[in-house]
Amino acid sequence: MRVMVLVKATKDSEAGLMPSTELFEAMGKFNEELISAGILLAGDGLKPSAKGKRVAFDGPGRTVIDGPFAETRELVAGFWLWEVKDLAEAVEWVKRCPNPMPGPSEIEIRPLYEMADFEEAMTPEVSELHDRNREKVASR
């Protein structure tokens, strides 16, 4: 199964504080372990939300909101995409991660939807419509 592993933001990450040399090194080592275990598919760090934007939807309305955003703890500072056997394996790997922040921090693990999750809910017609939509988006 694929999981997205989200490093949650803190005051420090939101302030754009760069990780120490030690943390960089420890994180590099951890990433190496993920690679040699064959589970790391992708991953990157995100700039503070001050550099980001949001688009709010309300019916036909679209409002662009500039960062920074409040609720620091709910923001994301980095992510990985892993391929693991189950959630327990992902939890064990996350426990091995060096604390990504200078202070207390949180990492969240979220399994991705897979085709099998949709198959029950989707009739062939809906599935085809879904594919057609994706095709339109891709050809743009």
Partner: peptide, 14 residues
């Protein structure tokens, strides 16, 4: 398939 991909990634890493 997933298992083979993992093995392939491990081998490439090693």
């Amino acid at each position: 398939c997933v298992e083979a991909q993992r093995l392939g990634r491990i081998l490439a890493g090693l």
